[in-house]
């Protein structure tokens, strides 16, 4: 299949991204470059200088809302992608509303508690919608420990499933980017199989 045919196909789909930090911002950039038609991105944080070590933002964007800055950056990558942003803390009540109509949802939160909440909400209240989760990306090296596992048709997990972020094991651009790209790659795989 030629790239233009692939882009024509992807233009018809909508992908939800829960969180615009290291995973979400990098995953969104990859999906925009691929030409996914619509991205729905939700985050409630502002960009801090420390975020620049791994997140898809620039020095002149420090202090901006992540969603606003990401929308700006995605427009510079591919202006044809329709980007819908929500500056909200996601919860059980608003997730099905914000991500309604999405063909796939990407979990891109920081804390394990928020990951759990999103997974439970999507898997119980939005049955059948594929969810691509990131788990285990801290530190550096160990490239081959990072993998992608299909749990079932609606649930995929990318990451090493074992490294937890701590002060001594911070998230760093290479491994965060690897997991984010892997999530984007799974999204493309799922969308390419849709008719």
């Amino acid at each position: 299949m030629r790239l233009s045919d692939i882009q024509d196909h992807l233009r018809g789909y909508r992908v939800g991204i829960a969180g615009a930090g290291g995973l979400g911002s990098n995953c969104a950039a990859a999906l925009a470059r691929c030409g996914v038609g619509t991205l729905v991105i939700s985050d409630f944080d502002r960009i801090e200088e420390g975020n620049l070590s791994r997140q898809y933002y620039f020095t002149d964007q420090v202090g901006m809302m992540k969603t606003t800055a990401l929308k700006e950056n995605l427009a510079r990558i591919n202006p044809e992608v329709f980007v819908i942003i929500y500056q909200k803390k996601l919860d059980r009540g608003n997730i099905p509303v914000i991500f309604s109509g999405c063909d796939v949802i990407v979990e891109a939160f920081d804390t394990a508690e928020m990951k759990e909440m999103l997974i439970e909400t999507v898997q119980t209240l939005m049955p059948g919608i594929p969810l691509v989760v990131g788990s285990g990306l801290a530190g550096w090296g160990m490239s081959n420990e990072i993998r992608c596992r299909k749990v079932d048709d609606t649930f995929y997990v990318c990451g090493d499933e074992s490294s937890e972020t701590t002060d001594e094991m911070p998230p760093m651009a290479p491994r965060v980017g690897m997991v984010a790209s892997m999530q984007a790659n799974v999204v493309i795989e799922i969308l390419m199989e849709m008719k």
Binding site: A112, I119, P171
Partner: peptide, 10 residues
């Protein structure tokens, strides 16, 4: 049965 651990970081 499928089980997976959720590690913080993202």
């Amino acid at each position: 049965v499928q089980m997976l651990y959720l590690m913080s970081g993202g």
